[in-house]
């Protein structure tokens, strides 16, 4: 027995269903009843119930691509702020993808405090200690560009259905984007005016994620700024 519609907005403590459903993220069971634990949109797929949250901090999970900022270093690696309650550890061997003789090599040449790094979450243990790796092509230290932070819960909207929003941002905005699951987004482009337009678009997505017709509005806004020309 379901008490809400698919994609309906629910709040914590709200009764979602009664019966033998599979309870996923954002929901919990008490006896036969299933309740929402966060503000979000109820997603009801077959026997699965999950609540897609509309707010909340980023909690790392293996396989996520994140954008981190180096905040500390130790003898064999670095600690990265990943816009989460938990910092990420990056061993020098997981950055360079080779064995490193720490006695012979000074690792400070590879990363410094404040550097921005694209990384992947390699492992998270039960105490929420996070291991990162950044050796794959396109990962590692970021050069140039602009870093924007949005609410991690809005990242799926930035990507859009089958990447449609991301394509609009890159094609119409004439920029290249790298989106971290942790809400950090890197933007590179030639025209500072279009970079700012894409930033505006990202803030608009964050602000209006819950208002219908978003992709069209973003498209229109970028086209308009582009047609005005100049730098």
């Amino acid at each position: 027995m379901l008490y809400v519609q698919n994609r309906e907005l629910v709040v914590p403590g709200q009764l979602i269903a009664e019966g033998s459903y599979n309870v996923r993220e954002g929901a919990f069971r008490e006896g036969k009843q299933v309740y929402a634990s966060v503000v979000g949109l109820a997603e009801l797929r077959g026997q699965d119930i999950r609540i897609i949250p509309l707010q909340g901090r980023y909690i790392p999970k293996p396989g996520d691509v994140v954008i981190g900022v180096v905040v500390d270093s130790y003898y064999s690696g670095w600690i990265l702020d990943i816009n989460s309650p938990y910092t990420g550890n990056l061993f020098v061997s997981d950055l360079l993808r080779r064995k490193v003789d720490l006695v012979r090599e000074d690792i400070s040449q590879y990363l410094s405090m404040g550097d921005v790094v694209v990384a992947m979450v390699k492992d998270v243990n039960e105490r929420m200690r996070v291991q990162l790796e950044a050796g794959e092509p396109g990962m590692g230290r970021v050069k140039g560009g602009k870093l924007v932070e949005i609410s991690p819960a809005k990242v799926p909207r930035v990507i859009g259905r089958k990447g449609s929003m991301l394509n609009t941002l890159q094609d119409v905005g004439e920029c290249k984007l790298r989106v971290g699951q942790n809400g950090r987004i890197m933007i590179w482009g030639k025209n500072p005016r279009m970079i700012n337009a894409v930033v505006e678009a990202l803030l608009m997505i964050e602000r209006e994620a819950h208002i219908s017709g978003l992709t069209d509005r973003v498209h229109l806004m970028l086209e308009k700024i582009k047609s005005e020309g100049g730098e």
Binding site: V11, P12, F28, Y35, S37, V39, Q55, G56, A153
Partner: peptide, 11 residues
Amino acid sequence: LADAGVPMRDM
């Protein structure tokens, strides 16, 4: 707390 996205059993 709910606005921060902290999971809650109820208000």
